[in-house]
Amino acid sequence: MIQIRNLHKSFGDLEVLRGIDLDIAVGEVTVIMGPSGSGKSTLLRCINRLEKITSGTVIVDGQDVMDKKTDLNFVRTEAGMVFQQFNLFPHMTALENVTIGPIKVRKMNHNKAKKLGMELLSKVGLEDKALTYPDHLSGGQKQRVAIARSLALKPKVLLFDEPTSALDPELVGEVLEVMKQLGREGMTMVVVTHEMGFAREVADRVIFIDEGVIIEEDTPEEIFSNPKHDRTKSFLGKVI
């Protein structure tokens, strides 16, 4: 699904990613962990080209994201993104947030889009909030609408950038529940998160990144109970 080879990314003099190799298979749930500033978010953002990569290759569903012939708008619909700050469109209702993608990008007619939007909102448990504006939704509800918005494009992979970090503790569960359900349905997901419970329950693999390189990758059981690298150990020691 995703092949990353020798990916480097610099912001000016600062090299954030220093040679990442990573393969993500269809249906796989990958959790990325690492200290802040380690490059986790940048890695996600390189996958759907919100950041331009400095060197290396990123191939999403057979399309090289750096190739000039690649339609970036298309790549972005293949890899949906869920943001830490939700980034819902405040001037649109929950339903409109979900349907704008299908209507404008997929040229779907309004009735069909509305039907799809309602299906997706009920999937995330928010069909009764369809006509509500984001300002009147809780953080957890906003993030669930954002997930529905990404799903509306029927992406092949969903990228989550710390989806629960901006939430009050009591709202984290409802978002993780939706994500777990997606995982069980076979959605390919790459999730930057520090939620150990989620990783343990849903992830096929946990990747630990520090200073722009992959330090260690393994199954969640193995990495949490038996981390091999010192940096992984000290990080997990602080997080748990």
Binding site: R76, T77, L88, F89, R149, A152
Partner: peptide, 9 residues
């Protein structure tokens, strides 16, 4: 970013 991420030009 959210706009671009859902494929809007």
């Amino acid at each position: 970013e959210a706009g671009r991420s859902i494929g809007l030009s």
